[in-house]
Design a protein around this nucleic acid. Structure first.
Lengths: 136, 136
DNA sequence: TATTAATTTGTAATAATTACAGATTTAAAA
DNA sequence: TTTTAAATCTGTAATTATTACAAATTAATA
């Protein structure tokens, strides 16, 4: 459970002024490791911050991604999902229940021959999660 | 240079009836390893097949992906790119010139602990390609 | 307190994709 | 070959995620 206090410092360290909205979004990301979409975050936070706009969530998440506070996952064809954990890891998405799981991975494999300087690595696994497989 | 003939067989092997449009799209994918988008394919093929509809390209590519004839790449936030090469490999996208390169990779790393059965693996590298780096 | 800058908000615009129904083409049956 | 049915293609309209933008609000500074 990450506190508001810690995330405030975390934002400042990345040169971001911690507003109410920004903190709420970062806290949400930190306390829900579900890799939520903009819409999910909006649905969840709107009752708490009644004036909250979806545009703010888009803007804030873009800012977070650019500043290295969060990751944008393109593991789903329809929606972008966000991850507050920027440490090295992969993701697994269940094609049935659509949940996204973290996959621990200490380092990504680097190919010997690559056409340039790598700044980001995204490793996505897709399949059927154990939960869904047991339900068949 | 893949010929119309071979791709015709390739489609049949995947249970797809080789129409003029489907063959043109598959030929294009095969002969241009640029990982084109729907729009690019449309711009290129429309002059050749004047009646071609963009909807057909969407439908055909969905069919190809579902049948295992092509891969859909979500390496670009804006557009889906398509790859006619379904063999195991990764991709590198230059954040400057936006080109997508194939990265050879004989097999994807499988993590020891994964939450389900993996059916697809997508490995995307992003950075600055050698060409763009030399131009700085 | 007055002024300026930064942030947020809501609406409108954009753009990719999908739904759908009619037109066309292909295949099969008569 | 002609008729009939099935599959495919096409164009338009609808949907949906995202971005642009300008006004409103909030925070910071003088």
């Amino acid at each position: 459970m990450t506190s508001n206090q810690e995330n405030s410092v975390r934002l400042l360290e990345h040169g971001i002024k911690p507003s109410v909205q920004r903190l709420a979004i970062l806290d949400y990301l930190d306390n829900h490791r579900t890799h939520p979409t903009v819409d999910v975050i909006y649905e969840e936070l709107a009752p708490i911050i009644p004036t909250l706009s979806k545009t703010t969530i888009y803007n804030t998440l873009s800012l977070f991604v650019q500043s290295g506070v969060a990751l944008a996952l393109n593991i789903d064809e329809k929606n972008v999902h966000y991850d507050g954990d920027t440490s090295t890891h992969a993701h697994f998405r269940c094609l049935k229940c659509e949940q996204i799981f973290d996959v621990s991975m200490s380092e990504f494999s680097r190919p010997e021959l690559i056409q340039g300087e790598v700044l980001e690595t995204h490793l996505y696994y897709k399949g059927i999660c154990n939960n869904c497989k047991n339900q068949l």
